[in-house]
Design a protein around this nucleic acid. Structure first.
Length: 274
DNA sequence: CATTTCACCTGGTGGC
DNA sequence: TGCCACCAGGTGAAAT
């Protein structure tokens, strides 16, 4: 579901509501183990910790947790998958279906993880033995021109597939891959290694600007995405190609086409993107 | 190796 | 109304 701008919006919203708060009690749904660590050990690790900060890294949400006496600092890492949501509620708020985790906080608030399709992941790390979470790929908001270009050099896959590869860049998903390729005027199926220096630089700038614009508008709410306080984003109103198959291109009037690239729906304007 | 395909899940939508 | 095929913001394992 969520890509970089949505995850950024959620992390900011959650951070504003829970930073400095203390986790009093943790509940996990019994039917599924959330990630590498079993639910029980995550709960034990989380309880009694103070949440120092909640921030985004790639598509991951990292909750930085204070040490408790002998235990060192820790992190709770949340990946929302396709349909995951991280909500701050009151304990009395009705518990909706597919709620997998509830963290009761000292302030009286509750942090909930809800995820119908269960593609999301939860991980607890104690920083004594494990290293702090780090994304594999580079951050598209800050990457420089030469670093960006070198990511794609000599690669034989499509530029769309390369943008989606989290080992190269962290945080780009289907919406923003399509939207940035449109802004840069590049065909999604074009071979990544054959892009010119000029095209790569157009793409880097387009990607950064489309992500920044989307963050400014609170992300894209395509179906049921909501931020921490249940507010929808508005960037879906700015989509120029994503899910606009058969609609007129807003630049040239030609029809937006849908193809499958890298196993994903891919939308582009055949006239504007070469 | 690099690249592609598929399975993992549930729910919504649109055609018949 | 019901049934069914298809689609969905992601990712990692298996296959090529």
């Amino acid at each position: 579901m969520p890509e970089l701008p949505e995850v950024e919006t959620i992390a900011r919203g959650v951070n504003a509501r829970v930073h400095g708060d203390c986790i009093v009690e943790v509940w996990f749904a019994s039917h599924r183990e959330p990630f590498k660590n079993p639910a029980r050990s995550q709960a034990v690790g989380l309880e009694g910790r103070t949440i120092l900060e909640v921030r985004r890294t790639g598509k991951h949400i990292v909750c930085q947790l204070a040490s408790t006496g002998a235990d060192p600092d820790a992190q709770w890492i949340v990946h929302l998958g396709m349909t995951g949501r991280l909500l701050v509620t009151t304990p009395e708020a009705p518990v909706e279906g597919h709620t997998h985790a509830r963290l009761r906080l000292k302030s009286g608030r509750e942090l909930r993880f809800v995820d119908p399709r269960r593609f999301g992941r939860l991980e607890f790390r104690e920083l004594k033995r494990e290293k702090a979470f780090a994304a594999q790929g580079l951050e598209p908001l800050t990457i420089g021109a030469s670093e960006f270009a070198s990511l794609f050099r000599r690669r034989r896959l499509s530029i769309k597939a390369a943008l989606l590869n989290q080992g190269l860049l962290s945080g780009v998903g289907n919406i923003y891959a399509d939207e940035s390729l449109f802004r840069a005027g590049i065909r999604p199926r074009k071979n990544a290694g054959r892009l010119t220096r000029l095209e790569l630089e157009r793409l880097r700038v387009a990607l950064r600007s489309v992500l920044e614009d989307a963050i400014r508008l609170g992300g894209s709410s395509v179906s049921d995405y909501v931020g921490a306080e249940g507010v929808r984003g508005f960037f879906q109103l700015e989509h120029r190609v994503y899910q606009r198959t058969g609609d007129p291109c807003l630049s040239c009037g030609g029809l937006i086409r849908r193809v499958v690239v890298a196993g994903r729906s891919t939308h582009y304007c055949p006239h504007c993107q070469k």
